[in-house]
Design a protein around this nucleic acid. Sequence first.
DNA 1: TTTT
DNA 2: TTTT
Lengths: 156, 156, 156, 156
Amino acid sequence: MSGSVNKVILVGNLGADPEVRSLPSGGMVANLRIATSERWRDRNTGEQRERTEWHRVVIFSEGLAKVAQNYLKKGSKVYIEGQLQTRKWEKDGQDQYTTEIVLQGFNSNLTMLDARGEGGGDSMGGGYGGQRQTENRRPSSAPAFEPGGMDDDIPF
Amino acid sequence: MSGSVNKVILVGNLGADPEVRSLPSGGMVANLRIATSERWRDRNTGEQRERTEWHRVVIFSEGLAKVAQNYLKKGSKVYIEGQLQTRKWEKDGQDQYTTEIVLQGFNSNLTMLDARGEGGGDSMGGGYGGQRQTENRRPSSAPAFEPGGMDDDIPF
Amino acid sequence: MSGSVNKVILVGNLGADPEVRSLPSGGMVANLRIATSERWRDRNTGEQRERTEWHRVVIFSEGLAKVAQNYLKKGSKVYIEGQLQTRKWEKDGQDQYTTEIVLQGFNSNLTMLDARGEGGGDSMGGGYGGQRQTENRRPSSAPAFEPGGMDDDIPF
Amino acid sequence: MSGSVNKVILVGNLGADPEVRSLPSGGMVANLRIATSERWRDRNTGEQRERTEWHRVVIFSEGLAKVAQNYLKKGSKVYIEGQLQTRKWEKDGQDQYTTEIVLQGFNSNLTMLDARGEGGGDSMGGGYGGQRQTENRRPSSAPAFEPGGMDDDIPF
DNA sequence: TTTT
DNA sequence: TTTT
């Protein structure tokens, strides 16, 4: 197939502490339960309504699994970027399917959104096992960044 | 909870023609099966490997459902933006859960990526029932857009 | 062209209070300055480095502009979804280009990420002028949502 | 600051062949010009309108730069994921700012969307220098994937 | 069941 | 300067 994309972006809160397990192979896996909510006003009744969705997040990246283990807990707010994967398993001889958001490899992200002191403020990508970026590869000939304040005289 | 985000972005191909149904309420629903694939080379064996993921997409937006009905078919490539939703149902008295990507309301998108002649090339947002944007609300005082060519003398 | 997509997703903090203006046409515009930062360890020197990027966000959606006016202030953390637009203007007879993230129409989002009490926790889409969703259009035949707790007997 | 996110997602077409340069340091950089378009019907006049936005994309990832060099050309359709960066430079003694979408490091992506025969169909992440994923790290205890067909008896 |  |  010409290229495809499979991406999930969540901002939500952990419904429980992370469950972290070591694997026989030496790796680590962390499982998170994340809630996202939406609120809206019902057009007919005019009453406030809310709906919460629960997501299963599985972190196979060792660096990110450690971040989860060390910094996340029930209630933590996180930004998550991963892929959808559905796996099959059996229960009482019946096929069951579970869909998860998998963080594994280069196109994953886990960023803590709580204020410092409430559990963190770091962000990490999945491809580097705990080290975000090993070098700024921007060529030295490139002009340095400079923000430009709100008061630059650019006409809004 | 302070705000949350629940977003899925897919680029993939339809595994079958869309299934479109009319609802008693007068609305429409379209169901799509979309495949995303990834290929990689196994580190140990060196052999090429591939994995395909199948996604269930449900379109509750009438405008987008009509686009699906009129322009998409088996094999069509699409860009999809929606939300994750898991619903419960029963089978032989056992609870089953199915996770779908739902396109409904303002934060959904369906864009055809095939070249014209292969099934279309329009794009539509979910919130407008077939009409993307009714007006350019950019205030008239804002300077008009002008791209700037590749050959502008901006130092790459 | 067959369909295209132009999307920016930011999570960052306001560098200043929002600037909100009323337009002659009766509409509103809000301008935000948002900072995103990344930190990494330099591969060569081993020292911690940081880089901050400043973004110009322009909100043409009246509902979202009001949210910005009423709930956001310097330091607020937000999730932003919009489009890239570059506009041209003049300064001393020279062409200048400014690139902004524009929130306008159905595919925009502004979600406050601060804890309640620090400035809010609502989320709104751009297409509805202050009302997120007017109805849950999920057909009544669809099974109701039910989360399934971390302790469901699904084998992690 | 607690974590932030800076992400751009584009689907569009190249306005010109990629410009690829080698760096003194031995690296490579590719520059792309990408167009995204939107069409809508004017609410007042009823006429069809179109707007094209031009984006500057800079690829510092060597693997992705080679993909650009070898497979992309004027007209190619691509999916791009990168970060916003604004850099400053001078022209006639005046400060100029240019905003680019930078692909560098683990959270970048470049996926070709043309059908094979029109220029390719591979996809690559930025963090691996040409090799997407070296191993499927899903633990062997995890049940294998199996899609579930459209005709499974799940009630749509 | 798609696609390459 | 792309694409439809």
